[in-house]
């Protein structure tokens, strides 16, 4: 009996289903190469925007047992500089047989089309469209992930601009995420990434003030795994494209649960920060051990097992 972690994602052959989630450490070629060497099946860069962004002032992140809250504020060198970084990263990852996913963000629907064209010059294996960052609302207003209409409009613009595979990253704080997922797939998305962080805040009682400089931020880590599972489970019942299930994955069992909810790939973010990039090889080992123990020969035999249609 053997258990294989190999997975075909939109025709891309991956050694395992774990993906470095966008926003965690995807800031340089050396750091993304390190994650690939430590066992990530694919690596996602930090979201690039039309112009460089410094991000928010400290405090930007707090981490405790229950999770992580952050409001980094989309720090990035701007999409033109990002193309150079992505090209170098892609070269290094190719040598390791690890695909590169490039994340991007823009303030307007039209600007998404411009940024995606620029990022496509680096020819990443997938472009992830971040329409759901919860930490820049004061600058850019309601995220495009808030309604099926605005999410589909961004998707259509991006779809028209490039032929590379695109995944749309959705927000959890909506009434019907499955409906939004269906709208973006109808508008041309090849995959769905779910979920982004959950809007949240911390207040310090002694200071009588919000802790994050940005006041509010995005919650991730263990606290949001149940939220992410439900979102992926609902999306998987509404669309047939592959899902990158992300949110609170810390161990092999978490990854198995996410795949059973219908995910093809599993994003890992906060756990990489909490434990370091070595977390990838640990989760892979645990996932493989679980599959052996429970007699799942491959990921396909486990995928969607918890969906109603498979009961």
């Amino acid at each position: 009996m053997e258990a294989s972690l190999a997975v075909d994602f939109l025709g891309i052959q991956m050694k395992n289903p774990l993906v470095l989630a966008s926003g965690i450490l995807g800031t340089s070629a050396s750091i993304m190469e390190r994650c690939a060497r430590e066992g990530a099946g694919a690596v996602t860069s930090k979201s690039a925007s039309p112009e460089p962004r410094a991000g928010h002032a400290n405090p930007v992140t707090l981490a405790w047992n229950g999770g992580v809250i952050n409001a980094i504020g989309l720090t990035n060198p701007g999409c033109r500089e990002e193309v150079l970084l992505l090209r170098e990263t892609h070269e290094r990852l190719k040598a390791l047989g690890v695909p590169l996913f490039a994340s991007l963000f823009a303030p307007t629907i039209e600007a998404f089309g411009e940024v995606v064209r620029i990022i496509a010059e680096a020819e990443p294996d997938l472009i992830e469209i971040n329409i759901s960052c919860p930490n820049v609302g004061s600058e850019f207003g309601t995220p495009f992930s808030a309604t099926a209409k605005s999410a589909a409009e961004v998707t259509a613009v991006v779809r028209k601009a490039v032929s590379l595979p695109i995944s749309i990253k959705l927000a959890p704080n909506v009434p019907e995420i499955g409906r939004i997922a269906r709208a973006v797939v109808e508008a041309g998305a090849d995959a769905i990434t779910a979920i982004n962080t959950v809007p949240a805040m911390l207040i310090d009682a002694y200071a009588g003030k919000p802790v994050l400089k940005n006041a509010t931020g995005g919650l991730s880590g263990a606290a949001i795994k149940p939220v992410a599972l439900k979102a992926v489970w609902e999306i998987a019942q509404m669309v047939s494209v592959p899902i990158i299930g992300t949110g609170g994955i810390r161990c092999g069992l978490d990854a198995a649960e996410m795949i059973m909810a219908g995910a093809t790939l599993v994003g890992v973010g906060s756990a990489v920060a909490l434990e370091g990039p070595a977390v990838f090889s640990r989760i892979n080992t645990e996932l493989e051990a679980f599959m052996l123990q429970e007699a799942y020969p491959d990921l396909a035999s486990m995928r969607g097992k918890a969906l109603p249609q498979n009961e």
Partner: peptide, 28 residues
């Protein structure tokens, strides 16, 4: 340093220094 916990990547030691010191690239 920004996040202080290995999330944001701000404090990565430049790769040439890592090489010079025998540290893995992407050292935070």
């Amino acid at each position: 340093m920004r996040c202080g916990v290995g999330l944001c990547g701000s404090c990565e030691l430049p790769e040439d220094l890592c090489l010079q010191l025998g540290l893995p690239g992407g050292w935070l």
